[in-house]
């Protein structure tokens, strides 16, 4: 803790600088509210339910999309990782679609799915799918051949090898996919809500910008920051529960 003192002092100074620059008019701009004002608006809107309901709806869409996308990615990844031929046919398609930046698929999808939940869930699932697929395939490929042979001589069936050997051995790699796809899900949710605006936290930001309500805008960004932080925390917790052996064994 002692080591961080200077850093925390710096952070507090920066926040004070923000407050002072707005309060004493060092930055002359309509768009530069004081930190206190932003916190106040956030507090009021969270309490009144205005912001909390929006956040809850966005998170619900994000979670549904995330679960669908990662399940599909992991399942297809297990398949492609174990079946070479299928891999040869499908991987080129995946590689062709994967580099498309996700905002670009939203306009055509609006034509089919409208601008409501279906669109946003689909877009989140789509963006999560690729990192999960790639990391699962990589994990399955890198399972040490000796482990699989050991299981075979111990009379393990193909299905059990997949479940008891390949899946746990690939889990660290799958988790590293989650490390990428979890923040990506949040990003994509916001992107989709901004482009196909009608509701959600992303839409709130865009609307506040049009309406010149900087306090509302910053308070939405603040909420997203907290959510991003919590997601990371959640991930670390899960990682410690699911693969406690991994980091320790790597250092051994």
């Amino acid at each position: 803790m002692k080591k961080r003192t200077a850093g925390i002092v710096l952070l507090i100074l920066l926040l004070l600088l923000w407050e002072a620059s707005a309060r004493f008019g060092w930055v002359k701009s309509e768009n530069w509210p004081t930190l206190v004002a932003v916190l106040e608006v956030t507090y009021r809107q969270l309490l009144s339910g205005e912001l909390s309901l929006v956040l809850a709806a966005s998170m619900a869409r994000m979670i549904v999309g995330f679960v669908i996308g990662s399940l599909c990615g992991i399942l297809l990844g297990l398949l492609l990782g174990t079946l070479r031929t299928l891999d040869g046919f499908l991987t080129p398609l995946v590689e062709a679609v994967r580099p498309i930046p996700v905002p670009a698929i939203i306009p055509p999808l609006i034509l089919f799915l409208g601008i409501d939940d279906a669109l946003k869930i689909f877009v989140v699932a789509f963006s999560v799918f690729f990192p999960m697929l790639v990391s699962t395939v990589g994990g399955v490929r890198n399972v040490d051949e000796t482990l699989i042979r050991t299981a075979r001589t111990l009379q393990t069936t193909q299905g059990s090898i997949l479940r008891f050997v390949i899946l746990p051995a690939a889990l660290p790699s799958i988790m590293s996919g989650f490390r990428i796809s979890l923040p990506l899900a949040l990003i994509t949710t916001v992107v989709a809500e901004m482009i196909a605006g009608s509701s959600g936290i992303g839409y709130v930001i865009v609307r506040a910008q049009y309406a010149m309500q900087p306090q509302e805008m910053y308070s939405a960004v603040l909420c997203l920051m907290v959510i991003g932080y919590l997601l990371n925390l959640l991930f670390l917790l899960f990682e410690r529960r699911l693969i406690p052996w991994y980091h320790l064994s790597e250092n051994a």
């Binding site: 000796t146 482990l147 050991t150 051995a169 052996w245």
Partner: peptide, 13 residues
């Protein structure tokens, strides 16, 4: 079969 690379044949998890 007992493998030469025993460290790779044990399940680390």
């Amino acid at each position: 079969y007992l493998f030469q690379q025993y460290n790779k044949s044990l399940f680390p998890w």
